[in-house]
Write a protein that binds this DNA or RNA. Sequence first.
DNA 1: CCAGACGTTGTT
DNA 2: GTCTGG
DNA 3: CCAGACGTTGTT
DNA 4: GTCTGG
Length: 221
Amino acid sequence: MCGRYFLDTLPELLAGQFRVHKYPVYSASYNIAPTQPALIVRRHDDDNEWAWVRWGLVPHWAKDASIGAKMINARGETVAEKPAFRGAFRYRRCIVPASGFYEWRTQAGGKQPFAIVPTDAACFGFAGLWEHWTAPDGSVLETSSVLTTSPNELMATIHDRMPVILDPTDYQTWMQATPTDASALIRPFPAERMRAYAVNKAVGNVRNNSVELTAPIESIG
DNA sequence: CCAGACGTTGTT
DNA sequence: GTCTGG
DNA sequence: CCAGACGTTGTT
DNA sequence: GTCTGG
């Protein structure tokens, strides 16, 4: 699955990789967590645009926004049918840029966190969905979710799920094609194109925007 | 018909 | 142990 | 995902 | 909003 990630790629590289004609404005974070603001790419007026949305999709019919905390991931196998996601899957697919993501391996003695990064690009692009929700007071909240799929050979050594990662050549298909064509992109990303590093210390809570990535104990892949 | 859910993950 | 908040 | 909390009372 | 369970 994907419950925590980081983003420290330079804005000009992000704009280039995701084909947005503006630079995103943000500061690097090594601790992007559910319910926190996430940078996404989506279609708007026949163009790609950046948007900040809250991670954790709140369906339009929700009575309050708290349900979003549970909707941080959508299973790729069922996203087209589930009431909470199908509308967003049909009409509001987006991409979530991530310099890398964390995954925890349960093992004797506790959980070992790993940071997984791309080997051939500045950034991963997660397949995502976004949604808008109108609060009782009339204010609008935009939210997002990250699709998951079965793990590749590398990720299987850590966990039994992984985020859906798109090849850059598929970005526009994901956002613009029919749901049927988009569905074909829901699959494990090649293990040869990523590398996992054991992280020295647990990520910690959201207020602690730091993690040691510089001295891997162990690398895989 | 109404009431209640609507999701994912992990788990010795 | 399980839920909530970030 | 992890960190941190985890309650009761009384109320026309 | 829409489906499922009772």
